[in-house]
Design a protein around this nucleic acid. Structure first.
Lengths: 208, 208, 208, 208
DNA sequence: AATGAATGAGTGTTCATTCAT
DNA sequence: CATGAATGAACACTCATTCAT
């Protein structure tokens, strides 16, 4: 699959992301996609080869660029806590903007059944972990962060908190009285992000 | 749906849980279930009405009992931190034992598409939140916990961390060198649980 | 696939034989079959598993019984030439009655592409060849038949002549002025059969 | 359809012949052809109008020239049996070299479904039959051949024997222990041809 | 003259569900 | 009460062909 996608391909990918996010991969038929995208059913197979290949293209299309952002962040001259906070903001923002694909990425692709030809996907995760490690070790070197933290478990806490919130959207809309889509998104960008930052800071800084 | 299920119904539910967890709700056909459970295809519709109703029954069947455990915990005479730690252990254990159903509960059911007739499900969550609130407020009253924490966001951090770890099982097996199913589960019960406890404690206790 | 087929299954097989014979295997869709047989499209897959398996069932269904007829023939007390003539008559009759399936058997199945799970099919051929061999060797022992004939090439001459005639039906209807279906079939039973008998007799008896 | 085909058209025809012979007409898609011939999918429709018209062109392309060979043969000064033998050799060689197209010609085109615009095809057959008739009548006039033979049934015996052998290639490779492609083809050129010649000679010469 | 893009119709198959027994 | 038989709808995908360029 070439990287340069035409308008219709991008349109299909956008629709696919939306529907996959809403109804899951298996729950979305290419008929659904073609109907919403107002294209011929055959187009999906024609452009992407198959439904699975469409998913692969979608993942590649949406996940490019994060690595560069992380590398830029690492090289910034910031205090450790500020850097971690910025990393969290970056993560949440990025994922929240592409929530569809990230939902698929973390739940559809994680299942045993799906064996996508995405060796790169695991690489992305490892690369992200590496970036996080660099930042934390920098903070540890500066004496700001505790040294006995298990770094690979930081990401689950950051992303897990976000995803759990997102997956239980109706519940939290109810509980937190977030009546509009806007107020819900604002809550994520402000309060939820702050909560995660606070949590991670506490975990990294607080001595038991 | 009656609460008293016969052996065959339970057998179906067990198989359904396993397969739903492995392949998702849409990815599992009732043929798959009937084949593994060695029962007639029509049995599922016969006993549960439909595939969706089967899922509902499964959820109800597997989620009963948690509330009682929580109430018992609240009434125990423990230090706030110990109580929270015990709550986390209880959560993780319980969910880890029923990971199949919880995976469905949190990801399948969360989608817009699925509109299960499960008002009780939201009730369960609210009740759980109430229990957590009681414990935390008790700790705040005792001057142990900070007062500016957003309680509804604690659960996402606890459960989200766990789920994110679980959903990326192959990745963490690789990263943490957990080669056997046993070592993986042990890691959850020890290190991951400890990480979550540490995180929540830090969040609740550490003053910014 | 069980040998005891119900009425609808037999009906499907009859229709399938007709259509496969007319339009070939690939040229016939299961929709065609279901339409002509006035059954639901899903029935074919339901009863036979797949289109290919339907073909297998068809072959097995239609080719049973020939072996017994051959064995009976061998044991009859007839002059060698009479026995060969009877064998030819039996072959032609049998194949002419099941021309549909035999056409498929000899042309569809012969292609490289089709790899049916029909080890039995090759066995049938070998068994038939064995029977022919017995009859010819009997004639050779009685000093009636030449001894330098290549027995495996007899069947191609018998069946090949019939099939070539049958495959070029429109041509021979034109050439031989066979205007009705009946006169065409009569020609096969009389003149064509006699031609083949005469040919084989000449081949087996005439000394170069 | 013009008779003067360019290189690309010939290339397409060659590939089409190969694939049609291997997988049948319906079993071969123009995608297959375009892929193997390394040309654009649209080329087939562009050059030949349609898949069916491609088949027509293929037939015309490959069957030209036989008539001339036959006329030359008739005018040769040979003994009747030698002439028939040479005719058989010529037939077998020619068909064996173009087995792909002849297979299609005799089996695909013979079906009711296919209504090719090939009046010429029937003409070719009639012309060939005429040539055969001339040779046989010459032999009868010389008192070498029997007079009660049905001439139109000679061709089915010659070609039918060959085709039946060819269509059951795997069976005869097994039975006759012909392990290589070369030994198989040699067998056709020598033993099978001799068998057919012997058969026809016996039929034409032997008095009942 | 040649082709990449696109399409509607059709492919075999599987789906969850119903129903007569 | 339980189930084998049956079904219409939907599934992902491939087909031969068309058409603007």
């Amino acid at each position: 699959m070439k990287n340069d996608l035409n308008d219709k391909q991008i349109q299909i990918l956008e629709v696919a992301e939306k529907l996959f996010a809403e109804k899951g991969f298996d729950g979305t038929s290419i008929r659904d996609i073609s109907k919403v995208a107002k294209i011929n059913i055959a187009m999906v197979s024609y452009y992407f080869g198959s439904k699975e290949k469409l998913l692969e293209s979608l993942v590649l299309f949406k996940t490019s660029g994060l690595k560069e952002q992380l590398i830029n962040l690492i090289e910034e001259n910031l205090e450790p806590v500020a850097k971690i906070n910025k990393l969290i903001t970056l993560y949440i923002n990025r994922i929240n903007c592409n929530r569809g694909i990230y939902r698929i990425l973390h739940f559809e692709l994680a299942s045993k059944k799906r064996v996508l030809e995405l060796p790169s996907f695991s690489e992305i995760k490892k690369s992200n972990l590496k970036s996080l490690e660099l930042i934390i070790k920098e903070g540890q070197a500066k004496g700001v962060f505790r040294k006995d933290v298990i770094i690979p478990l930081i990401t689950p806490t950051i992303l897990g908190t976000y995803f759990h919130f997102q997956m239980n959207k109706p519940f939290f809309e109810d509980i937190l009285n977030l009546k509009t889509e806007e107020s819900y998104n604002t809550y994520i960008r402000t309060d939820l992000t702050k909560h995660i930052q606070q949590t991670i800071k506490a975990l990294l800084v607080y001595e038991n």
